[in-house]
């Protein structure tokens, strides 16, 4: 039958959603670029960023995209044990990134740098903060997926598609971080 009620509707939904969300991040990043250099108060406010440390945590986030992909592959091969293992590793890597961001924010706060400090800090905290929020939501989503897998989810084709659709979101969050990291930390501090 030509009409398949489950022909990737989840993937269509998620692709369209991350496309829309990408526009949101584009505006936040644009605000950072637009205001870069017009911040008043501290000279060279970007000195307070530490691209090397953040870079290490970023590698964790990017690696988590790979582990997520491996868990998708395992799901396709109907290997629930490996799905669980890769999914858990993805969660740990994502959590590590959030930990890194918390430490980074804590360090900035201890230097009395808050969103209200100057325009640079406003745009920086808003952009990275909203990305962090997305990662947190992603972590919740991973937990839900883990729960579903424990309940036997992933045997049907449509469930695999759904799982991959959810993974789209995780990959998207990682890709956005590529843009944010290179624009805010590399271009922004050069």
């Amino acid at each position: 039958m030509a009409l398949n009620l489950f022909s990737n509707k989840s993937k269509i939904l998620m692709s369209a959603f991350v496309g829309s969300d990408a526009v949101f991040f584009a505006f936040l990043i644009t605000s950072f670029v637009f205001y870069h250099g017009s911040s008043k108060g501290r000279p060279n406010p970007w000195r307070d960023l530490d691209p090397a440390t953040t870079g290490m945590y970023s590698v964790a986030l990017w690696a988590s995209s790979g582990t997520m992909w491996l868990s998708e592959q395992a799901l396709r091969r109907k290997n629930p044990r490996r799905v669980r293992r890769w999914l858990e590793l993805t969660f740990v890597l994502g959590a590590l990134f959030i930990l890194g961001q918390c430490l980074e924010f804590k360090g900035l706060f201890s230097k009395s740098i808050y969103p209200r400090t100057d325009l640079f800090a406003t745009t920086f905290f808003t952009t990275t903060g909203f990305h962090g929020l997305h990662v947190l939501i992603g972590l919740v989503m991973l937990l839900i997926l883990r729960g579903l897998i424990a309940g036997g989810f992933g045997r049907e084709d449509y469930q695999i598609e759904g799982y991959e659709a959810a993974a789209y979101y995780w990959h998207f969050v990682d890709i956005v971080w590529v843009a944010i990291f290179f624009i805010l930390y590399i271009w922004g501090t050069r």
Binding site: L28, S31, Y35, S38, S39, K40, G41, Y114, P115, R116, D118, L119, T122, T123, F125, T126, F130
Partner: peptide, 22 residues
């Protein structure tokens, strides 16, 4: 809306001319 809220609630400078915003 988010930038406006950051300005209003966290005293950000997105649209604050005195802080360099536009």
């Amino acid at each position: 809306c988010i930038m406006l809220l950051v300005d209003r609630q966290l005293y950000g400078h997105f649209f604050n001319a005195n802080g360099g915003g536009s």
